[in-house]
Amino acid sequence: MFKAVLYTQWKWTRLPLLILALAAFALPLVSARQMTPDAEYWDAQGLLQSLEALGAFYPLLAATAGLILAAAAWAADHRGRHVYALSLPLPRWHYVLLRLGAAALLLVVPAIAMWLGALIAATVTTLPPGLHAYPTTLALRFALAGFIALTLFFAVSAGTSRTAGYVLGAIGVLVVAQIAVGLFDLKLQILETILYQIYIWPGPLEIFVGRWSLFDV
C-alpha cells in the first residue's frame, strides 16, 4: 500500500521535486563560489556577511518544499472530495499516515541533494583558517525545517473547511484584538507576543530563524 501511495505522490510532484532538489544542491555550491581559493582572512568577514545574505534562501527553500509536498499529498483527494480515500479498506488514520509518510520520504530527496551539494562545496573550497564547513549540519537543519513545514501544511490541508475556518477565525480575532488594543491605547502587543513565542525556542518555527550558512567559525 505504501509503495502505491508513494508512487502516486512521486508522480504528482516529480517535476517540482526535481527543481527543489536542483536548487538545494546548487545553493551550497553558490556559497562556495564566493570563497575563492586565495581569499584572505580580511575578506572572510565580507564573505561571511554575503553568505549570511544567501542564508535566507535555505529556510525559504525548506518551507517551499514542505508546502509543495503537503499540498500535492492532498490535492487529488481534495478534487475528488476524498470519496476515493474514504472508501478504501483501511482505517482512516492509516491512510493519513501513508500520505504523510510518502511526503516525508520525498522530502528526503532535496535534503540529500543539499547534503551532497554541501559536501562537494566543502571539499572543493579552501577555507581561511578558523572557518569551518558544516555540510551535514546544514542538511540536517534543512531537513528538520522542511519536515516542520511539511507537517504544518499537511495538517492544515488534512482538515475540513470548517477547521480552516476556525484557524482563520482565530487569526482574525487576534488581529481585531490587536487593533482594539491600539485604539484604546493599551500597551499590549498581542500579535507580537504570539509571533515571538512561535519563533523562539521552543516554538515550532524556531529552527527557521537564526543564521544559515555552510561556512562559519
Binding site: R92, V96, L97, L152, A158, G159, T160
Partner: peptide
C-alpha cells in the same frame, strides 16, 4: 512534527 502529525490524524474527517 509529531504533534502536527497527530493533529492531522485527529482531523474530524480522518
Amino acid at each position: 512534527c509529531l504533534l502536527l502529525a497527530v493533529l492531522a490524524l485527529r482531523s474530524s474527517r480522518w
